[in-house]
Write a protein that binds this DNA or RNA. Structure first.
Lengths: 231, 231
DNA sequence: CTAACGAGATTCATCGGGTCAATAGTCAGC
DNA sequence: GCTGACTATTGACCCGATGAATCTCGTTAG
């Protein structure tokens, strides 16, 4: 256990115990270093580690603060981690995402407002347009697609579940591969499947929403598997 | 964007691009710092950040290495993050865990070997014994309980799913609270529910495994909710 | 010839000192 | 009362040095 690790644990326990609340400001580096009994450099390593985990936030000239610790914020750090995985692992993540997102869709079907549904419809209209465009912009399509899934997930009423879905739908390494292999035909098919999901959500039918979402992601899994076999 | 953040991105891209493979050794700090054009201290902050994310591993005197990047390793870092949440958020995590673990149990029912099942039976026999002991050791019970759920999850055939389940069953803050409030009666009830899960797994019946697991965790959720209301 | 040993080189861990840049708080001027 | 310049605060970043853990490799005992 290095002194930096000890400092991380110390700061962590100060937060978990409530000694430091979200939004609180930490003592200045020099003082905190003295309190914890280590050098400023080593303390900075600890602070940096907690910063990339979105637990602390530093602003030059202003100070270091505890973040809101919202699940979405924290799990955002996880999507950073997920990006390191190989394509085979990506299939497992996608498989897991299917489990979570179909459940989230079922729950969202009971909770989405007409405004949410309209917004979702507009996003998918964009997706149809992007898929039918003269020159297919896979980059833009995947960005909007992510947006679609995010809206569905975030209406489910459980922010931890939503954050996990968004995280698993994030930038995995094969997602970059997708960009080159993703065709306008696959995109058009995906947009049509989205229509089915939106319809299920409008009907407020959890079973339909669940099944349609599961099938949609399953198709994505199959496509990815085929792409991986090609190489 | 600070120079350290830039270094993190640079190292990340080196791994994602395959320039650095799992197990590879990084250049020594002094050299790498020169290559990336920053001081050793700043580079060390970047390395430390990737170390707490379990992406790099440093050994004094030996060097800095890229980890295996196994999902379990990576998601292990997540359980560290999850520990920061308040009890209310813990309910959401438990809710999410129910979704994942019931699915994992259903899958495991099709895959567990007789040896796995025997092992599970033994673990639960221990749990029964612990719950019936003269002086109830909640610490030991929860440790064995975690073990039980881990064995079920890890047989599901998807290591990412398994890792997520284990992570969500891990050290959340209320888990510490559990230790004081957890009674031998609640423990005995949990062990009986485990019997039902083991039975379903032995029957190789995914639906029973799914339902029994979901109900088990649901009971845990209810219990936690009641405990939270008390305060 | 093999295995245990040990000196030296390598590498990360930690420290103290310092400069620079961004922010916030203060106070004069209108 | 409001604006803007000045100043103190604070994190960002750098350099150089020492200590501790590990590895390398030649040496020696069996």
């Amino acid at each position: 256990m290095t002194v930096t690790d000890a400092a991380i644990e110390k700061i962590k326990s100060m937060i978990v115990s409530g000694e430091l609340q979200p939004g609180d400001r930490l003592p200045v580096e020099k003082v905190l270093a003295a309190e914890l009994g280590l050098s400023r450099n080593s303390l900075r390593e600890a602070i940096r580690a907690l910063t990339v985990l979105r637990i602390l936030e530093t602003r030059q000239g202003a100070g270091t603060y505890v973040t809101s610790l919202a699940p979405s914020l924290i799990l955002d750090a996880v999507s950073f981690i997920v990006a390191f995985h190989d394509p085979k692992t990506a299939l497992e993540f996608l498989d897991t995402r299917r489990v979570l997102e179909s459940e989230a869709a079922a729950r969202s079907s009971q909770r989405m407002t007409p405004e949410d549904l309209d917004r979702l419809g507009m996003i998918n209209a964009d997706l149809h347009a992007l898929a039918a465009a003269e020159v297919f912009d896979s980059e833009a399509f995947l960005r909007a697609d992510k947006q679609f899934h995010r809206v569905v997930a975030e209406s489910c009423g459980n922010s931890a579940l939503a954050a996990l879905v968004v995280m698993l739908g994030g930038q995995t390494e094969p997602a970059r591969m997708l960009r080159v292999a993703f065709s306008d035909e696959v995109a058009a098919q995906a947009a049509r499947e989205h229509d089915g999901i939106v319809d299920a959500l409008r009907r407020r039918d959890p079973d339909r929403a669940r099944s349609r979402t599961a099938a949609h992601i399953l198709n994505l899994e199959d496509w990815l598997e085929r792409e991986l076999d090609k190489r």
